[in-house]
Design a protein around this nucleic acid. Structure first.
Lengths: 154, 154
DNA sequence: TTCAAATTGTTGCCAAGGCTAAACATTGTT
DNA sequence: AACAATGTTTAGCCTTGGCAACAATTTGAA
């Protein structure tokens, strides 16, 4: 195949290094692993703040899934030390869960404000932020903050 | 606990409508459903363009997963009419797969160029784009394009 | 107090996407 | 032609996060 005088395959310099690309995809997979946990602690924190408590039923409603699904996830988060709960009682965050929630809410706010500053309609911005927030690096987040500040100065 | 004269629960007007929130999360879940398919057709198209063919081994290397995993996904994509393949032969995209790949590559390019225009370092921009691209709406994509144009005019 | 409604928990099912190990096919070399 | 190396597929297992159906508990109202 490669003993011809004229190469029939173009040089592959349009493709990035395989190892590099693999690391990127790995990072996305890890982010996705963490997504559920982040969404749950974020919403639990919001519910506790706004309503005084977070119940399984509320989470199921707001995520749009069955209560059985919520329950299963809660068991995992409990195992991972993010949520503490007693049978038939409402949900609480551990210290570690509270920390994660705080960081996630801050990141969510930055992404949302950024999209709004860019001129996106509020409903779209909210929807996009929900998906995007889990995939922005610290560097990009810093650039978002910078853009928001600049935009507000105009 | 709640038999006080003063209500200890603040009004919940800081929370958005549950149905609305459920739709947002649903959209994210659907996006995630499509992510794998999009990443695969995108990479298959890139490989065919750059090397003349896309093989299971290449995909496994570039995604950073085992070849068995790639094979299983390919079977699904075949079932869904995006990829056509013969046993022990390299992979091809169907017309529908080609269309999806084209749209994904275009979207990827916009997200990447946007992050670069924002001043993000190339390596970070690539990594973030890989995760973000699946979660931006058409409206946000349009805003990204607009920003790129404005930035280039400076 | 008793009982029905609401809430929470459990069980068993499914698909997706990870993995390893082993079987199978193709290809190039000797 | 035979064989070794390379590439592909299959089989079996795991975890996550969906679901429905049923069991259990709590709570509010009669």
């Amino acid at each position: 195949m490669s003993d011809k005088t004229v190469p029939d395959k173009p040089p592959a310099d349009t493709l990035v290094d395989p190892g590099q690309q693999a690391r990127w995809f790995n990072r996305v997979r890890e982010a996705h692993q963490a997504e559920t946990a982040e969404d749950y602690v974020e919403l639990i924190a919001d519910l506790i703040e706004a309503q005084g408590e977070a119940r399984v039923v509320d989470l199921a409603n707001r995520f749009g899934v069955s209560h059985a699904t919520v329950n299963k996830v809660i068991v995992r988060l409990n195992r991972e030390g993010l949520v503490s709960n007693q049978p038939y009682r409402s949900l609480f965050l551990t210290e570690s869960g509270k920390g994660l929630a705080r960081r996630c809410k801050e990141r969510h706010r930055v992404v949302l404000d950024f999209l709004l500053a860019l001129g996106i309609a509020p409903a779209t911005a909210e929807a996009d932020a929900e998906g995007v927030e889990h995939h922005v690096s610290e560097e990009t987040l810093a650039a978002f903050r910078h853009f928001i500040v600049k935009q507000n100065q105009k």
